[in-house]
Simulated assay, not measured.
Amino acid sequence: MTPHHPHGLNHDLDTLARQIRERRSALRWLAAGACASLAPLSLVACGGGGDDESEDAVSAASGGSCSTIPRETAGPYPADGTTASNQRLNALTLSGIVRSDIRSSIGGASGTAPGVPLTVTLNLVNTSDSCNSLEGYAVYLWHCTRDGGYSMYSSGYTGENFLRGVQVSDANGQVSFSTIFPGCYSGRWPHIHFEIYPSLSAATGSDSVGDHLTVSQLALPASVCNQVYGVASGYSSSVRNFANISLASDNVFGNDSAAQQLASVSGSVTQGFVATLEVGVAA
């Protein structure tokens, strides 16, 4: 065991903050697991957090542990240099792909994806090292438009590359993206894809195809999806598609513990939403 060294007040405060995040994440996993077992209509009531006292009571039993996020398919539209949908496209080599705001296209394309504003924040923790934050890791994140299309692949969007971007985790293991709330297309629960790389060069290098540590997906809570799809313009097809899917029937989340992938979301249609997910990686 590494001997303890005094690092000062800032270190202690950072450690305390991380422990609080871990405890709250444990509660979200437990609550989300219960929601996932309910019928689709019941899921509408799931997605909000409880009070602080409840969080501390539940998380006290967790022991401050974290779990490795399930590994998932990158899907048919990754644009990560691998062959998918009979094409080998690579957004990771585009100039400007390292960015926090992914709503507009780059590299000569000029489109902007419309939709309800959404900030996605991922907190990377090392499941092989006491859940300590992972600094300097690159995250490639992508998702569909409000009507279910994917840039670079879908009809009408082949000339665009928006809703794709890379960020490098800070000292707290955090990356953040400004984007739009994705739509729900037929057969899939509303989700966001991401790949994690050990460094920026591993993510964006021309010879780095397949060098990611893991690939997974973030699930959005039913209550928030219903808010967006039932009110915001441009999401009309999502209403019907969302009514015919559940976490349990989804061919990705239904095969794993969706509780580890279900984001905590706050906000409103008028002000925008913030989605947060702790991502455990065995680094």
Rank of each mutant, 00 (worst) to 15 (best):
M1Q: 06
P6H: 14
P6Y: 13
G8F: 09
N10K: 08
D12Y: 13
L13N: 09
Q19P: 08
R23K: 06
S25T: 15
A26R: 05
R28S: 11
W29T: 13
W29S: 13
G33H: 07
A34D: 13
L41G: 01
L43I: 03
V44S: 10
A45S: 08
G47K: 06
G48R: 14
D51T: 13
E53S: 04
D56M: 13
A60P: 04
S65Q: 12
C66E: 05
S67L: 14
S67K: 07
T68C: 03
R71V: 11
E72L: 14
E72Y: 04
G75K: 01
Y77G: 03
G81L: 11
T82H: 00
A84S: 07
N86V: 06
Q87F: 05
N90F: 06
A91I: 08
L94S: 11
I97Y: 00
S100L: 05
D101L: 10
D101E: 02
I102L: 02
I102P: 03
S105L: 02
S105N: 00
I106G: 04
G107M: 03
G108S: 01
G115I: 03
V116M: 00
L118S: 01
V120H: 04
S128R: 13
L134N: 02
E135P: 02
G136W: 03
G136C: 03
G136V: 00
A138M: 01
A138Y: 00
V139T: 01
V139H: 04
C144D: 08
T145F: 01
Y150G: 03
M152L: 14
G156T: 00
T158E: 10
F162N: 15
L163A: 04
V166S: 05
Q167R: 00
V168M: 06
S169Q: 07
A171E: 11
A171I: 00
A171V: 05
G173H: 04
S178H: 04
S178R: 04
F181A: 03
G183A: 02
G183N: 06
Y185W: 11
G187T: 02
R188S: 07
P190C: 09
I192D: 04
H193R: 08
F194D: 03
E195L: 14
I196T: 09
P198H: 02
S201F: 03
A203S: 09
D207E: 12
G210N: 08
G210W: 07
H212R: 15
H212M: 12
H212D: 10
L213N: 11
Q217F: 10
L220Y: 14
L220V: 15
P221D: 14
P221K: 14
A222Y: 13
V224E: 11
V224D: 13
V224S: 15
A232P: 08
A232C: 12
A232G: 09
Y235E: 09
S237F: 09
N241P: 07
F242P: 02
F242W: 09
N244D: 05
A248T: 04
V252L: 06
S257N: 15
A258W: 12
A258K: 10
Q260D: 06
L262W: 10
S264F: 12
S268F: 08
S268L: 12
S268M: 10
T270E: 15
G272M: 08
G272A: 10
A275T: 02
V281P: 04
